[in-house]
């Protein structure tokens, strides 16, 4: 046996496990990206189609954007979607911030785990179950109060937005050096001033992330909205769903493309905001 064959048999220096070095990693990644983004491409392309077909390209035009813009049902649904998403995401973010403070800035207490579970419950329970439960609850209230306004939608959206707002805020609070708050208290800051001047500025990127996430989640919701909304209270997604039941036109493509652009813009803004604050 020669030295050469000997050295060939000894294993090379062990590198730490990395999924990137596994065979097929690149292929699987490409397939995933393709499945995620490829369907978006025809959507965007056909939103600029000058014809009425969603399958045959007839030329470039902004026709369907103009049509959507002029459609008063779309206008109506857009305003309602924005009102609901803004109100719900703000309320949910405030509540989530308080919940995050209550679960990270206190001595561990009995029932803390149960509270985590309760805050995150909307993530676990099937949306349809929440939707039916809210439908029944709100039907009762509607019968008693005779109020049929937008508040039901806002409350429902707030409820399922809380865990989405809670997660980034809690992560940020947990990553924060606790001695900073101790130092603030040492320098005569009352608990409220400590929160305003130290805690909040430092968790602000988390709060913004929570707010944006909640906004997008609310803007996107179909199931709960469909169950909770009163007659004539379509949001953009439920309006689009309604349109699909009839002949589908590139108008839906145009609306979807705008929604896509809004969410891409928000993610990008958040990314740069966050990087600036680091």
């Amino acid at each position: 046996m020669t030295e050469l064959s000997n050295s060939a048999q000894t294993p090379t220096l062990r590198r730490p496990f990395s999924v990137r070095t596994q065979p097929g990693f690149a292929t699987i990644a490409m397939v995933c990206f393709f499945l995620l983004y490829a369907p978006l491409l025809p959507l965007v392309v056909y939103s600029f189609n000058s014809g009425t077909s969603i399958a045959f390209w007839e030329g470039f035009s902004f026709r369907w954007y103009v049509a959507a813009w002029d459609n008063e049902f779309v206008q109506d649904a857009t305003i309602r979607s924005v009102v609901v998403a803004t109100s719900a995401s703000f309320t949910a973010t405030c509540l989530a911030t308080m919940a995050a403070l209550g679960t990270t800035r206190t001595r561990p207490y009995r029932g803390l785990t149960a509270i985590y579970a309760m805050i995150n419950q909307p993530l676990m329970v099937p949306e349809i179950v929440t939707a039916v439960a809210l439908l029944i609850l709100f039907a009762t209230i509607k019968a008693v109060t005779n109020y049929h306004g937008l508040a039901y939608l806002i409350i429902a959206h707030t409820a399922f937005c809380i865990p989405f707002a809670y997660m980034p805020i809690r992560a940020r609070l947990e990553g924060m050096d606790l001695s900073l708050e101790t130092a603030a208290a040492d320098l005569y800051a009352t608990p409220w001033k400590t929160f305003r001047r130290v805690t909040l500025p430092l968790v602000w990127p988390g709060v913004l992330a929570g707010l944006m996430l909640a906004f997008v989640i609310s803007l996107d919701d179909v199931v709960i909205t469909e169950f909770v909304k009163s007659a004539g209270q379509d949001t953009l997604p439920t309006y689009m769903l309604g349109q699909l039941r009839r002949a589908i036109t590139p108008e839906v493509h145009a609306i979807s493309t705008v929604l896509l652009a809004v969410s891409v813009a928000m993610v990008t803004i958040f990314f740069f905001l966050n990087r600036k604050m680091q």
């Binding site: 050096d177 900073l180 040492d186």
Partner: peptide, 17 residues
């Protein structure tokens, strides 16, 4: 702590970033 006229220099400084 915020009502005591004593101030602390912390081991890790705890400066506000």
């Amino acid at each position: 702590p915020y009502q005591r006229q004593v101030n602390t220099v912390f081991q890790n400084y705890a400066l506000f970033p």
